[in-house]
């Protein structure tokens, strides 16, 4: 380690040789990278799909298969092809018979430490939220992460009312987070005492996302009833 490097006499390496060496090394390395990419692409893509499915299936327990859709200002359509700016992505889940089991979408709001990203399940039958799962959060372990373990809190999301108003332009009642033990309406969420900020973030994430997505979804919900072959 500590042997001093003997000063080498200055020797000018011709520039072509430098370029050649770098070119050779880069080619070899490029080949290695391409090989690795090709070799792992399928497995990685399968992994990503599985992870997404697992989250979606968790918030919509009846789901057995799913498809990715997007809601654009012109209506909804299956994802794929070019993405329209401003399009909202959502996932349509079907049960074993291929009948619509629910819709899942992502929402995000500022929590205590950072943005809390959640995926919530929406049931068009009862027009309510049926559950949510965490996509990413940096909330304090032991306090903020109670949102996925606290049974009383999760009970809020068994049938959280998100009915649309008569014009189908927004939610009839905003989803609201209230102090623990004061929930009286179906669209209110009982906060966890001691994790109020994170609880509020969950409510806001659902509200913000549902306000945008559900009005676009409502007119076309019929399109989603059956899985496309």
């Amino acid at each position: 380690m500590s042997t001093p490097i003997a000063p080498t006499p200055p020797q000018a390496t011709p520039a072509t040789s430098l370029v050649k060496t770098l070119g050779l090394v880069s080619t070899v390395c490029g080949l290695i990278i391409v090989g690795a990419y090709q070799g792992t692409y399928d497995a990685a893509a399968a992994n990503r799909r599985l992870a997404l499915e697992r989250t979606v299936f968790k918030v919509i327990p009846a789901a057995k298969s799913m498809a990715e859709w997007q809601a654009t200002p012109q209506g909804i359509r299956p994802a794929g092809g070019e993405t329209v700016p401003g399009a909202l992505k959502f996932y349509v889940a079907y049960d074993a018979e291929g009948v619509l089991a629910g819709i899942a979408a992502e929402g995000a709001a500022k929590g205590y430490a950072d943005t809390v990203r959640i995926l919530y399940g929406y049931s068009p039958v009862c027009q309510c939220i049926t559950g949510f799962g965490l996509v990413a959060s940096k909330e304090t372990p032991g306090i903020g992460d109670k949102i996925v373990t606290d049974k009383a809190f999760l009970a809020n999301f068994e049938a959280l009312d998100v009915k649309l108003n008569a014009e189908l332009s927004a939610l009839a009642n905003e989803v609201k987070v209230v102090k623990q033990g004061t929930k009286t309406k179906a669209w209110e969420i009982d906060a966890i005492a001691g994790a109020t900020v994170t609880s509020r973030a969950v409510g806001k994430a659902i509200n913000d996302s549902a306000q945008l997505l559900l009005p676009k979804l409502a007119p076309d919900i019929g399109k989603l009833q059956k899985r496309e072959p």
Binding site: S26, I32, I33, Y41, A43, A44, N47, L50
Partner: peptide, 19 residues
């Protein structure tokens, strides 16, 4: 360049093994 190559390889492999 060499180190970056192998880091990229490892990056792909881990994605394939466990997300």
């Amino acid at each position: 360049v060499i180190i970056a190559t192998f880091v990229t390889v490892v990056d792909y492999v881990i994605q394939a093994v466990s997300l």
